[in-house]
Write a protein that binds this DNA or RNA. Structure first.
Lengths: 119, 119
DNA sequence: TTTACATATCCCCATATGGGAATACAATAA
DNA sequence: TTATTGTATTCCCATATGGGGATATGTAAA
């Protein structure tokens, strides 16, 4: 069996750098195919092909207007990627652990002093 | 040019479901190849091959101990993925915006009251 | 040494990729 | 109608994939 197709899911679709570039462009505003081709410096047929992949995994939607097609980002489809990778955040974001630790220490301290008042 | 190799970066390496499974297993504790083969129900050679990909992008490290090889997760390599996908969080996590707004309002309030004390 | 266990590599193959180039299709304007 | 512009598709090809299966390599015990 070969590698799973790029159209399998968001994980596979965003593996390609160019598609991430496209997604990033679309995050700001809807773009036409030629807009993207120009701003990314990529031939139009390639953009169209990448957009097709993004469409198939629902990462973008299209709206036709005259002879233009406006592509918009449907970023919600990235949530599964975010959710998965977020579970590993603790492995690098030690500050987060510190914040938590500080907050807990503070809570413990308050609890202690309130006990002293009571006692 | 074909698709970029799985060993190009973390984005490509984690596109494969099995490798995400392996990463998840390793998040808890270091595992040997056979540990992974057994817990994931995958033939050992396949596991070895996936681990090789993960090694090449530095997502795992190995430590030899007798005839065992203990694979550990090097989750920091996932940070670029996290950072990239996090920039889109606002597109689905509207609550986060609220939390931020509340926090900012609170901060503004505190600033105000401290100014009153000073003045 | 031989045996057993643990892991990595090798070979085979169907498959799909992304880029390049050419062209088809679509929508409007002249 | 024809011309023009915008977009999608088609063809070609080098490449590498992941699984299956067999086997090589490595390490330690008998």
């Amino acid at each position: 069996m070969p590698r799973s197709p790029t159209t399998t899911d968001a994980f596979n679709a965003i593996a390609e750098q160019r598609r991430r570039d496209i997604i990033q462009q679309l995050a700001g505003k809807a773009c036409s195919v030629n807009d993207l081709a120009e701003s990314l410096g990529v031939p139009q047929p390639q953009i169209s092909k990448h957009l097709r992949v993004l469409r198939e995994v629902n990462l973008v939607t299209v709206r036709q207007e005259g002879k233009h097609r406006w592509y918009s980002l449907n970023a919600k489809q990235l949530k599964p990627v975010f959710d998965w990778v977020q579970t590993f955040e603790r492995f690098w974001d030690h500050q987060l652990l510190n914040i938590k630790a500080v907050a807990e220490a503070k809570a413990a301290e308050q609890k202690k002093s309130s006990r002293q008042k009571e006692g």
